[in-house]
Structures are given as C-alpha cells and as structure tokens.
Nucleic acid binder design. Structure first.
Lengths: 191, 191
DNA sequence: TTCAAATATAAACAATTGTTGATGTAGATT
DNA sequence: AATCTACATCAACAATTGTTTATATTTGAA
C-alpha cells in the first residue's frame, strides 16, 4: 500500500498553484498552506523549489520527444506524419494541460545548467519538425515553403491548445479540435 | 531641449532587462545598476515597479487595437482585412520586438485591477479577429471554419514573430516573413 | 547671479523568501 | 517491546526585495 501518494498530491498541488500564480509568484508557503501543513514539511517531498519545476518540465518534454521520435521513425508519408504530430500534441495537451502550460510559460525560470539543457531540448524539437517539413517539401506532398518559418508557425499555432483544457470553462472536443487544426494547417482559411 | 531623455533611457533599459530576465526576476537594483546610479534614484522616473510593466503593456496594446480598428472599419473584403491584420502585427513585432515580447510573456504579472483590465483587452482583440473571420465565412471568401478555433490558431501562429527580432541573431526579412505567413494561413502547407 | 527643476546618494524600513536543524508522533514491521 | 519510516511542527537564518525619507549636487533659464 501507501505508494508515495502524499508526494504525488504535493506535486499536483504545486503544479496547480504554479499554473494559477506563476512559478516565481508561488511560494513554498503557498503550496504548504494548500496542503494544510507547515512549510518545512514540504522538504520531506522535494529537495528544492527548483526541483518541482525541473521535474515537470523534463518529464513532459520527454513525452513530447518520444512521441515525435516514434512518428519520425515510421514509414508514413510526411503529410501523414505531420497530422500525427499535431494529433499527438493535442492529446497530450488535453490529458495534461497544466504540465503543458508549464512548458509554455515557465521554462524561463529554470536555472543553469538546467536552463541551457531545456533550451537545447526545445530547439531539438524544432529541428525534428523542420526535418519533417523538409522531407514533405522534397517529396512533393507540401508546397515549396520556407521551412524555418513554417516550423515556427505550425508549432506556434498549436501551442495555445492546453489553454482550452487547463481551466474547465471551455470544453472543446479534442477530436473536433484536431479536425479543425489539421484542416487549417493543411489547407488554410481559403475556399 | 532635454526632453525627458533620461527617463526614456531608464524605461528602455528596464524593457531590455525585463526581456532578458523576466519581470519578477528583474529587480529595481538591476535596472539602477545598468543605469549606473543608485536604486533610490529610479523613483524619480517611475512611481513603482508595476508602473513600468503597465506602461509598456497598455501602450502597446493600444497600438494593436487602433490598428485593428482601422482595418475592421475599412471596406475591404475579409480576406484582404486578414492580410492587413497579419501584416500589421509583423510590422509592430519587427519594430518593437521587446514590447511585444512583454505582451506575450509578462502580462500575468499585472496586479488587480490592471490585470483584469488587460485580460479584457486581450479578449476584446480576439473578439475583433473572430468577427473578421465570421464576416469572411459568411461572405464566402473563407471556408466554413470553426471561428473560435480558427481565431486561436491564427493569433497564435503569429505570436512568435517578435522572437525573430528581439535578439539580433536571426534577421528575417519582414516582407518575406509576411509573404510566407500569409501563404500558410490562407493556403496551408498542402500543394 | 539667482532659483527652480532635474538628478543624484545614503541609510534605513518592513516584509517576504527558500531553506535548515532539531525534534516529535503515529503506525507498521521486526 | 523495540525499531523504523512516513509525516509533521517550531524556530530561526540570511538574503533579497520594493520603497521612503532626508538631503545633496548639478544645470539650464530668468
């Protein structure tokens, strides 16, 4: 029994609070108060405040990377791969919106050397997307686009998705969301 | 002569520093040190640290809104209006990348009641974009898209642009950038 | 030269922050 | 019964922070 459930609760509360107030604005006392125990007790669960951020950031980043790698390694054509990358992102963002929110908003608060490490992972993810697009342009399934710009545009155009699931207000159906985004990315707004 | 140039310098240094380290991580002492004077002197130029943030955020927000309003008020067809909104955003982001960076990254650090005020402006801007898209769908220049989702996707897809101009490393030509983004938004990646 | 405005410093403040160390308790395991 | 582990508190720390007050210097205009 008793499988670190208290620690998981602590981390979950931390995640929620950091989402609400931002990492810097969230104090260890804030977290402890919501857990209903003293600040000092927090250090029975984590080594430092920074550790909370690092834990979520690198764990979720890895999830994105392994998914991306599986898709890139497949033998589907580039357009199918792009659809899968978009689909995968939406699924993660719908399942773990707070973790994705952290990735989008709080990575600047990492300290060296973790900061550089994370920035490298980010830039690697962009490189993987660029490779996918270049593949599609070369094989002719994509138009002759500027890969650098297209990478930034596409990644940016899905970056907001977590927001539709982070606060329970607007509950968009992930399937419908995927259909719409894929349609926009592939064919744009034009008729 | 001597028209508040020292204050402008102070604000510019603040902007740069906030861009580098984030608003919360930037201390009044950091700014003063880069200005080469004592912290206390800073308060001859601004009322409080929050004021620096508010000043840039609301000033730049207004610039976006007036531009958007002019475009909406014109009699161009919706597709032409959308092109102009995208073009205008890119021009502002290229001319004032640090201000736009602040809008993207630091608005969460506003305090009430300015926070709510700013969030309302943000949501109003989205509403204006949604109206533009709805107009285009109704008139048939756009496909039958989900306006809510399309709004989020399009606004998000240009939100990164400041990043290409904030640090001088990658100098993308704004004209080429506009051409590429418009092409992606209107026709997507497909052939 | 005089005088007001702009620009600067020194010293201190109250509050907040992340973290540590010493210690206690309840329940499970030996 | 003895021990170990998870979970908790209390007190205190050193550092940092935004801001204020009182005061001085520089400077441009009258």
């Amino acid at each position: 029994m008793r499988v670190r459930t208290k620690r998981e609760e602590f981390l979950q509360v931390s995640l929620q609070l950091i989402h609400e107030k931002g990492f810097k604005a969230t104090t260890m006392r804030d977290i402890a108060e919501r857990m209903d125990f003293d600040v000092s007790n927090s250090y029975n669960y984590i080594k430092s405040k920074q550790d909370i951020l690092e834990l979520f950031l690198f764990r979720t980043s890895e999830e994105f990377h392994t998914t991306m790698d599986h898709i890139l390694d497949s033998s589907y054509p580039a357009d199918e791969k792009l659809k899968q990358v978009i689909s995968a992102h939406i699924q993660v963002a719908a399942r773990k919106p707070l973790e994705v929110a952290l990735m989008v908003n709080e990575w600047r608060n990492l300290k060296e050397p973790k900061y550089s490490e994370y920035v490298a992972l980010r830039s690697l993810y962009e490189k993987k997307m660029a490779k996918l697009l270049r593949e599609g342009v070369k094989s002719g399934v994509f138009a002759a686009l500027n890969v650098k710009i297209a990478t930034a545009v596409i990644l940016s155009s899905i970056r907001w998705v977590y927001d539709a699931y982070a606060d329970t207000k607007s509950n968009i159906n992930p399937i419908e969301l995927e259909r719409q985004i894929v349609s926009l990315v592939f064919d744009g707004v034009s008729h």
